[in-house]
Design a binder for these strands. Structure first.
Lengths: 344, 344
DNA sequence: TTGAAAGCGATACCAG
DNA sequence: CTGGTATCGCTTTCAA
C-alpha cells in the first residue's frame, strides 16, 4: 500500500465514507459496518484497524443529515427557545431535562425561531424532522401547529406552560398555583386588601396573568368580608417603583403579592424609602425563593416553586416517543408553597 | 424490470414532494420550482396554484436534511450551550446575536453537548455540518477541535471567552478588564488591602479567575506601598458568607471586589450583620451592574460591562462565512467601567 | 413549460 | 467476510 507522506493542506473537500473506503482499500459498506460496530456482520480485525486508521487520518466525521435521511428518522428533540430569558429556576430545570434526555441518547437542540409563532413556527421546526418537540407556551403553538408537527413525523409534541393545546401532551405549569399560595398566606396573616403587582414588561404577561388570576380566585373563594384584589402595574425600574410607593397610602392596601422576588425587592425598597413599615403597614410576599430574598431586611416571604425532576420528564418523553398512540396527557408539574419569613 | 405492486399499508406517512407532485398532477421538479420560487424557470399560473394547493392540503413541509444534503451546504450556525447558566447580561447578548443572525438568514441552533469537551465535542458538532460555530470557552475546544470543525466544512469558527484558540476567530471577553476597573476604583478611593471574592461554585472559575488576575495585576502595577490582594473563597450561600464575615476584622481588609453584584449582596449583608460599616470600614464593589445593586443600602458600586451589539457581530460572522480565507482575528468585545455609588 | 434522471452521503439488503 | 446496489427527499441540469 502506498502511503503518501505529505502533510500538505489535505483535500480541501470534506471527507466522506467513500474517501475512507478508498484509503482503507475496502468498500463503503465495510466502512459503515466497522464505524457503526454493526453486530450482524463480522469484520476481520485487520480490516477494522485499517478502516479506523483511515478514518482518523482523514478526520472523517459522519454526516448527520445523510444518516437520518437514510434512516428515515432522527433522535432529535427540539426545544424552541423563547426570546424572553428564563430565570434561574427554569434554567436549572431545562438543563436537567436536557441532560436526562441526552442520557437517553437523544440529541437535544434549541432552535431560535425568532419572530415566528403558531403554524409558521411549527413549519420551521418541522423542517428539521425532530422526533419530539418541547415547545414553551410562548410560541403560541396552536392545534394546527401541533398537527403540522405530527404530520412531519414528530412522535411526541409537548407544550410547557400554563395552557393546554389540543393534540399535544402538556407539562402544565399552572401559575395560578403560585397566586393561590400567596393569597392563602396573606389571608391567613390577616390581610384583606391585597395588591397584585403586574410587571409591565411585555413578555412577562404570559407568566404574570395566571399568577394574578390564581390570587384573585383564591381571595374570592375565601368569602371573607372586605377582601379584595387590586392590580398594580410596575416596571422593573426604580422610578416606576417610586411612583407607585408615593401613592401607596392612598391605596389602603395591607398586603401585596409582588409577582416574584425581584419585583418584591424593588417594591419593598421603594415602600421603605417612603416610610411604610413592612410587614406592619403592608405585608409583602414574592415568589420563586431566590437567594436575594433571604438577604433582604426584613427577610422576604416567598412562594417556593417546585419543578419536577428532569429525569422523570425525560422518561416520559421517551415513553411517548416509543408509543405515540396514546391520548395526549396533561401533567401538572408545578408545585407552589408559601414560605413565611419576616415580610408578611 | 418488475414493478413491485405498491404497498398500500402506508397509513400516515410523511408527505414528500413526490406526493405533492402526484396530487397536483405534475413532476417533482415542477413542485420544487414552484415552492422555491425559482426565478430561472417560469411556471404557468394555473400550475403554480395547483402545486400550492396540493402542498397545503397534504401539510407538506420540506425536509431540511435532504435539502442541505443536496445543496452541499447549510446555513446553520451552531452555538453549543454550556451547562452553567448565563446571567441576564449574556442572555441578552446571545438573544441579540441570535436575532441578528436570523435576520441574515442563518438558522441558529443551540446544541447541548453535555459532558463532551474538546475534540469529542467538536466531532459531535461537526456531524451537523454547521457553516459556522460560536463556541463558548467552557467547551474547551482546542486547536484540534477547531481543525475537526473546519475539515467538516465549517467556514467560520469563533470562540467566545477569555482565551484565544489557535485557528479560530475570537470574540475575546477578557474578564481581566473587570478586575482592573475594580482595582483602579478601589485604589482611587484610598483602599490598599484589598480582598477578592472567589466563588466556590465550580463552573464559575472560568469567569472568576480572569477577574481576580486583572485585579491583582492592576494593584501590582500601581506600585503603591502596602497595597495587596487577598483571595477569599465564598460559596453562594448564607452560611459561607457568615463564616467569612465572622473572621473579617482579623483579615484587616479595607476594600473588597466581590466577583459580581450577587456575591456582593451576599457579602455585604453578612458584613452588615457583623457590624462592619460599609464603606467606612470596608469598601465593596461588585460587577455586572444588576438592578439589585441600586436597591441595596448603601447603594452598591459596581463594574458595568459593555458587550458589543449583536448586529455587528452577526455581520462579522457573515463576513467570515463568505470569505473564510483570512487569518483568524481576535476582537476585544468586553468593555468594563467602574460605577461609583455608595458602597465604596 | 414540463419531465426524466443524476446525485448529495450513509446504510442495509442480497450476492458472491 | 466483503462488495455491489437501491434507497432516503430534494435540487438541478439537460431534453423534450
Amino acid at each position: 500500500m502506498v502511503q503518501i507522506p505529505n502533510q500538505q493542506p489535505a483535500p480541501r473537500s470534506v471527507p466522506t465514507s467513500a474517501d475512507v473506503a478508498r484509503l482503507a482499500g475496502v468498500s463503503r459498506a465495510t466502512v459503515s459496518y466497522v464505524l457503526n460496530n454493526t453486530s450482524a456482520v463480522r469484520i476481520s480485525e485487520p480490516t477494522r484497524r485499517r478502516v479506523h486508521e483511515a478514518a482518523r487520518e482523514l478526520g472523517y466525521v459522519p454526516h448527520a443529515a445523510a444518516r437520518s435521511l437514510r434512516a428515515g428518522h432522527s433522535r432529535m428533540v427540539l426545544m424552541p427557545t423563547s426570546e424572553i430569558p428564563m430565570g434561574p429556576l427554569f434554567s436549572r430545570f431545562f438543563n436537567e431535562l436536557q441532560w436526562a434526555l441526552s442520557r437517553l441518547d437523544y440529541t437535544v437542540v434549541q432552535y431560535a425561531s425568532l419572530g415566528l409563532t403558531g403554524e409558521d413556527a411549527a413549519r420551521a421546526w418541522a423542517e428539521l424532522r425532530p422526533v419530539a418537540v418541547l415547545a414553551p407556551d410562548t410560541s403560541a403553538l396552536g392545534p394546527r401547529g401541533v398537527t403540522v408537527l405530527k404530520r412531519s413525523g414528530a412522535k411526541a409534541v409537548f407544550t410547557l406552560g400554563p395552557h393546554r393545546v389540543e393534540g399535544a401532551h402538556a407539562l402544565l405549569m399552572d401559575g395560578r398555583r403560585v397566586g393561590e399560595a400567596a393569597a392563602l398566606h396573606l389571608l391567613s396573616r390577616g390581610r384583606r386588601r391585597i395588591g397584585a403587582i403586574v410587571p409591565e414588561e411585555p413578555g412577562l404577561e404570559l407568566f404574570s396573568r395566571p399568577r394574578v388570576e390564581g390570587l384573585r380566585a383564591a381571595v374570592d373563594a375565601a368569602h371573607l368580608a372586605g377582601a379584595s384584589v387590586m392590580e398594580l402595574p410596575l416596571a422593573h425600574e426604580e422610578g416606576s417603583a417610586a411612583r407607585l410607593a408615593a401613592r401607596w397610602r392612598s391605596l389602603g392596601l395591607d398586603g401585596v403579592f409582588a409577582y416574584n422576588d425581584e419585583y418584591a425587592m424593588l417594591l419593598m425598597r421603594a415602600l421603605q424609602d417612603e416610610g411604610i413599615a413592612i410587614p406592619e403597614d403592608t405585608a409583602v410576599i414574592g415568589s420563586d425563593d431566590l437567594m436575594l430574598g433571604r438577604l433582604l431586611r426584613p427577610r422576604l416571604s416567598t412562594v417556593r416553586i417546585e419543578l419536577p425532576s428532569g429525569r422523570g420528564l425525560a422518561a416520559l418523553v421517551d415513553r411517548v416517543v416509543r408509543d405515540p398512540g396514546g391520548e395526549p396527557e396533561a401533567h401538572d408539574v408545578l408545585g407552589a408553597e408559601a414560605v413565611h419569613r419576616e415580610s408578611s
